[in-house]
Simulated assay, not measured.
Amino acid sequence: MKVEVQGLSYGVKGVPIIQGVDLRIQPGEFVGVIGPNGSGKSTLLKNIYRVLKPQAGWISLDGQQLSELTHKETAQRMAVVSQETSSAFDFTVRDIVLMGRHPHKRMFAADTREDDALVGEALERVGMETYARRSFSSLSGGEKQRVLIARALAQQSQFLIMDEPTNHLDIRYQLQMMDLVKTLRITALSALHDLNMACYFCDRLIVMNEGKVYASGTPEEVMSAELLRQVFGVNAQLAVHPVTRKLSITYFPESLQLHMTPKGALIS
C-alpha cells in the first residue's frame, strides 16, 4: 500500500505541535520516525491513524483520501499498535486478538474457523499462544505489547502503524518483533526510540524536530554525528558494523571530553 501525507499540521489551543509534514511511503517499505521527546512523532502517527483530526493537509492510502473512508474501511486497510496497553474491560488474550477480525465481519457475525485459525497463528508468531485464555489485564507491559501486535497481524491490513512498538519489551522480543514486521513485507510506519534498531531494520527514516521534518532518507543518508548533536543533543560516533553491514551508533557521555578532528572523527 502506498501512503502519502501532504502539508499535515496539528496544534492545541493555537500552539502548533506538527507543521507542514510531508512524507511518502512506497508499498512494502518500512519507514521509521525518530526524534527527541516532544518532537511530534506520536502526534504525527495519531493524525494518520485518525485519533486526531488534522487542522491542515491531507493523508491518502493508495491514492484515496483518508477523510473519505469510513472508520471500518480504514481499519480494513490500516492496523495500529499504539503505546496504550490498558483495557476498560477484562478481556482474555484471545478476545483481544480476535478484535483484529472485526473490520472484516458484519455486525453480530459469528466467529469462523478462519478467524480462529488467524488468531492462533498470530499468537504463535509473537510467542503468546499459551496465553490465549489468560486475562489481558494480568499480563506484563511487554506481554500486552506482544498481544497487541498479534491483534494487528490478525487484522491482515496492508499498512501497519506502530508507536514505539518495542517499549516494555526485553531485547530478545525487541529483535523478534522488529524482525517479524520486516518479514511481513507490508507497508509499515513506526515511531522508534532506539536509533540503532531504526538503522538496522528501517528502509528509510523520517527525523522529526520541533514539529517539522528535519531530514529524511535512508539511514546512511540521514544519520550523522552532526545530526545527533543538533537534534538529540548527544555526542556519538557512527560506523558500519563489520557483521551486519548496517550503521551502528556509539554514544558518549558528556563527562567524556571529546574533540572533532578535521575529518569529523571524535577523539578524547
Rank of each mutant, 00 (worst) to 15 (best):
M1C: 12
L8V: 09
L8S: 04
G14S: 11
V21D: 10
N37I: 06
L44Y: 11
P54N: 07
G57D: 09
W58Y: 08
L66Q: 10
E68W: 12
T74H: 11
T85Q: 07
S86I: 08
S87M: 14
A88Q: 13
F89D: 12
R94C: 02
R94L: 02
V97A: 03
M99W: 05
H102P: 00
A110T: 07
D111Y: 01
D115M: 08
Y131L: 07
A132D: 05
A132P: 00
R133N: 13
S137Y: 06
S140V: 03
K144H: 11
Q156S: 05
Q158V: 00
I161P: 01
I161F: 00
E164C: 03
P165C: 00
P165I: 00
P165Y: 04
H168M: 09
I171F: 15
L175A: 14
M177C: 09
K182M: 07
I186S: 02
L189F: 00
A191E: 06
C202S: 12
R204Q: 11
L205D: 04
M208W: 08
G217Y: 01
G217Q: 12
V222T: 07
R229E: 14
A239D: 12
R245W: 09
I249H: 10
Y251L: 15
L256Q: 15
L258Y: 02
L266W: 02
